[in-house]
Nucleic acid binder design. Structure first.
Length: 939
DNA sequence: AGACCGACTTGTTCATACCTGT
DNA sequence: ACAGGTATGAACAAGTCGGTCT
């Protein structure tokens, strides 16, 4: 369609510098968008991979809590104490596990990384832009080094691999993985087991806190079942978190690459580092926004900040007054690239390198964005004048250009007939479409859910009509359609590489113009520009609406939000039109439509994670969490005091806050009847918490996404007693915290710290845990060893957050295969030993089982072989354990949503670990704002 | 005070692209 | 070249939380 457009060269881009302001005007906007293409999301990414997961494993708990009512806490104010005492029982296990897997991954990663790293780093995508190196800073190796390192790593990993882990383990204090007994039995995984209690601090220093142990539920054998939380437990009295779960995030987005623009995401492949810096500039100034306040942290609260900061100044100066204390400096650094840039490249540091790049890029065309004076339409605060985009209180952008959304293609009937009572049935295309949605799911678990089937049939029946031959689902046979679908899938799979490539290019061409938006003159990726296709709703858990038909969304359902001066995207479906066009710059969405399943709710189209708008709020989120660090001691002391409050509401708030702090529970909003029945802290039911005197609590509930949370935790006696009191006289299904809801809780938290809400504790605890574990456990060593340390810390956080994943279908088979191989190796080992004994006596080796003769090796050769085999066996056993250990733990989520990237970046700089080894391409794009952090940054 | 609306973050799963060892 | 696995990103569901309305 608009190919022409596409081709055009883009032009605008802001250079880092200043230009941000310029916006494009309408005129070019279209073109611009189209032009953007350059960047394409590169298909290839070599880059890095993130270390996902393997790690070592065990869980420890670590949070610091200090509050024990008891003296200790009070006495020592620990700031982030992660310490835990721990027992190191499990240490051995741990070691073993982790290593193997880790190694492997690492190795892989490294490779991947290399590419990235070296090339990217060094080179620009297109060519040559100089990268910056900020990143490389101290430690990082920039090009050269990185490469080397990588190589090294790989080899090392390969060779050692695992061993590293051991060392780690040692260091790690683990808390306790398991208390004694438990650990033994259960199978492999250590972590699984259970509950552990204390946390230890790495060094072994015992935390002041007394630990207790937790009970473990080792009984459970199946790991699967075990809750992550249980894996680690903490006991702390003091409070830190106990359990953990992993979390991950999701972002996905890709960075763009066009050389020309600077998108936030940065170009794809350039070095990220460089990019970072470079990108910064280009981006819109986070800072600005930021300036507004760390809004995220608190819009209101920030007030103070905001007040302090002059917004206007931001643009230029960006730095605001140092509101923050210590970090202020650092922060600024981190900040926004964009700001800096904007400022002009003024900023020193990064700027220089950055500039170069930027310049190049942008130079060609910069459009000028004009800042439109648009004022926010409705914004409550009218921003006066031209506040830079983002900076205004409620204002999120000044100019916004995008092409709208793309719709799924209309349904193409396949004509395959399903059966009803063994007879073929004719269906209209509309009827067939819905039947196909169902047929395609024949091999999923949804077929075991009667609600799903019922809801589907109810909705389908509406389309079939009352008098249709099909009267009940039981007599339907969808297998012809299912098989047709399988064949189609197979066909697709069989396509040649070229065909696939061609197909990909075609869709890219079709979609490209929708992929980008220009926000205040900066080209940014759009997150989800595709309208959701019709399908059957796949609600999780026992969702009452699962299986319902999600109807097709049409243009008349969609509201577009765009800059006033931007051309209104043309409606892609002839003869139809958008529902509404808005020009609201107080929000960040580009479009939305009503959720067909829950008409009261909306589905939004937002910018991608690499956008500065998102980056800015991400940064604010972490700043708020860092702020909590300064308040947490007082908050803990306060709630500890209220455990015994006579005011029931106060008491419940205190206990709830304690659980949120210590266990990283979610707030727990009320839910409607037409949603799955899940709970969070405020909505816990009496039956979800079992008391085990003297002071052990057993949690068991279904949380977000219907993920089960099970954990056994030792708590302070006062908490135990309070909960006991809350439970008395209630039915098992009654609310434990009957006087509470999230708004009351958050209102209370806000009194303690500006902008504080329940979820901030999760961010805080996750990040502080990472920061402390990294600084405690990182030792001198090679990159591979350091990565293992990182992964281990990542895993701890994941467990704290209780992020789980389902066990892969092939897990069982994989384990079986591993076991077989192990047996084989062991058998071979025995044979070799026998042969060795014989060889020493000058006898030839025995024949193989099938009677074939073997090569006659001398004793030395045999010994070497034996040693190799032993290594292989060890490695494989570690792999097996790690695999088992992590089969239900999702590491990505925490990295994406809970771990302040500056911790990671600074650590990488300090320890000369290439950032690409830890962050994959999309993470690098998402966290550009954190790349120029000072190496001394600590959360 | 609480229901409701609205916007945005967090979280799991799924489909592939990609990688590695054989 | 292939097969088995893994990592990545898309997809989209499900939370959180502020604000307004009543």
């Amino acid at each position: 369609m608009d190919s022409s457009d596409d081709d055009e060269p883009l032009v605008f881009k802001r250079s880092n510098t200043i230009c941000k302001a310029s916006t494009l005007k309408n005129q070019n906007q279209d073109n611009q968008l189209n032009n953007l293409k350059d960047k394409k999301p590169s298909s290839s990414q070599n880059s890095s991979s993130a270390p996902k997961g393997k790690t070592v494993g065990f869980p420890k708990a670590l949070l610091p809590v200090n509050l024990s009512p008891s003296s200790k806490a009070s006495a020592s104010p620990v700031k982030s104490p992660i310490e835990s005492t721990s027992i190191s029982l499990a240490a051995d296990k741990v070691k073993e596990n982790s290593s193997a897997v880790v190694k492997k991954d690492v190795a892989e990663q490294s490779t991947g990384i290399k590419t990235l790293g070296s090339d990217e780093f060094n080179n620009n995508p297109d060519g040559d832009k100089p990268l910056n190196t900020e990143f490389s800073a101290p430690g990082l190796s920039s090009k050269g080094n990185s490469v080397k390192e990588e190589q090294k790593d790989q080899s090392i990993l390969k060779s050692l691999g695992i061993d590293d882990s051991d060392s780690e383990d040692d260091n790690i204090p683990l808390s306790a993985r398991l208390p004694v007994g438990s650990r033994g039995n259960s199978s492999s995984s250590l972590s699984k087991k259970g509950p552990v209690s204390g946390t230890s601090n790495g060094t072994g220093t015992p935390s002041p806190i007394p630990t207790s142990k937790l009970s473990v539920k080792s009984e459970e054998d199946s790991d699967d079942e075990k809750p992550l939380a249980s894996k680690l437990q903490v006991k702390s009295n003091e409070g830190a978190l106990v359990s953990r779960k992993p979390c991950d995030s999701n972002d996905k987005r890709k960075p763009l690459a066009s050389p020309q623009l600077r998108q936030n995401g940065f170009a794809t492949r350039d070095n990220y580092q460089l990019k970072v810096s470079s990108s910064l500039p280009s981006k819109r100034p986070l800072d600005q926004v930021k300036s507004s306040g760390d809004q995220s942290s608190t819009k209101k609260p920030k007030v103070s900040n905001s007040a302090s900061k002059p917004i206007t100044s931001n643009k230029h100066g960006s730095l605001q007054s140092g509101v923050k204390t210590k970090d202020a400096d650092e922060e600024e650094d981190h900040l926004p690239i964009s700001q800096r840039v904007k400022k002009t490249g003024a900023l020193d540091k990064s700027s220089s390198s950055t500039k170069q790049k930027m310049v190049k890029v942008s130079s060609s065309s910069k459009k000028i964005n004009k800042n439109s004076k648009k004022v926010v339409k409705k914004s409550k605060y009218s921003v006066s004048s031209k506040v830079p985009p983002g900076s205004g209180e409620g204002q999120k952008w000044t100019t916004l250009v995008h092409k709208g959304v793309i719709f799924p293609p209309p349904y193409k009937p396949h004509g395959v007939k399903m059966l009803y009572k063994r007879q073929t049935v004719d269906l209209t295309p509309e009827q067939e479409e819905v039947a196909t949605m169902y047929a395609v799911m024949l091999d999923t678990d949804y077929m075991n859910k009667s609600i799903f089937k019922q809801n589907f049939f109810t909705d389908w029946k509406k389309i079939l009509g009352k008098n249709h031959v099909i009267q009940n689902l039981e007599d339907c046979d969808f297998t012809p359609i299912y098989e047709w679908h399988q064949k189609e899938k197979e066909k697709k799979k069989q396509m040649t590489k070229d065909e696939k490539q061609a197909l990909r290019e075609e869709t890219l061409k079709r979609e490209e113009k929708f992929m980008w938006a220009i926000v205040d003159g900066v080209k940014e990726k759009v997150g989800n520009f595709r309208v959701e296709p019709p399908s059957l709703f796949r609600g999780r858990g026992e969702h009452p609406k699962t299986g319902k038909l999600k109807k097709r969304i049409r243009p008349s359902d969609i509201t577009i939000n765009i800059g006033k001066d931007a051309p209104i995207p043309e409606c892609p479906i002839p003869g139809e039109r958008w529902k509404e066009i808005r020009h609201d710059n107080t929000v960040t969405w580009l479009a939305y439509w009503a959720d067909p399943i829950k008409p009261k709710e909306f589905k939004y189209v937002f910018l991608g994670a690499s956008s500065s708008l998102k980056g800015q709020s991400d940064k604010e989120k972490y700043e708020k969490a860092r702020m909590l660090k300064d308040y947490v001691q007082g908050i803990r002391a306060a709630y500890t005091k209220d455990f015994a409050s006579r005011d029931l509401t106060k008491q419940q708030i205190a206990v709830a806050t304690y659980l949120i702090d210590k266990l990283a529970l979610r707030a727990g909003n009320e839910k409607d009847e037409d949603e799955a029945d899940t709970v969070g802290c405020c909505t816990l039911k009496v039956e979800n918490v079992e008391l085990k005197p003297p002071n052990i609590l057993e949690f068991d509930f279904i949380g977000k996404d219907s993920i089960r949370y099970q954990n056994v935790v030792e708590v302070e006696l006062a908490v135990f007693k309070a909960i006991q009191q809350f439970q008395t006289g209630k039915k098992s299904t009654d609310d434990l915290f009957n006087m509470l809801d999230t708004s009351k809780l958050n209102a209370h938290l806000k009194e303690l710290m500006p902008g504080l809400t329940a979820k901030v504790f999760r961010t805080y605890n996750a990040s502080i845990t990472l920061d402390e574990m990294l600084s405690r456990e990182t030792k001198d060593g090679d990159v591979a060893e350091k990565i293992v340390v990182y992964q281990h810390a990542n895993k701890e956080v994941a467990i704290i957050c209780n992020h789980q994943r389902t066990v892969s279908k092939s897990h069982g088979a994989q384990m079986l295969r591993l076991n077989e191989k192990l047996e084989e190796l062991k058998g071979a080992l025995e044979e070799m030993k026998t042969d060795l004994a014989r060889a020493k006596k000058g006898k030839p080796p025995l024949q193989t089982a099938d009677g074939k003769p073997k090569r006659n090796l001398n004793p030395e050769g045999l010994e070497r072989k034996i040693a190799q085999t032993n290594l292989k066996i060890e490695k494989m056993e570690r792999l097996k354990e790690t695999k088992e250990d992590l089969k239900t733990v999702a590491l990505g989520t925490s990295k994406l949503n809970y771990l302040d990237p500056r911790i990671t970046v600074a650590w990488c700089k300090r320890h000369e670990v290439p950032i690409e080894k830890i962050f994959n391409k999309s993470l690098l794009a998402k966290f550009t704002w954190a790349m120029d952090v000072d190496p001394s940054f600590r959360f």
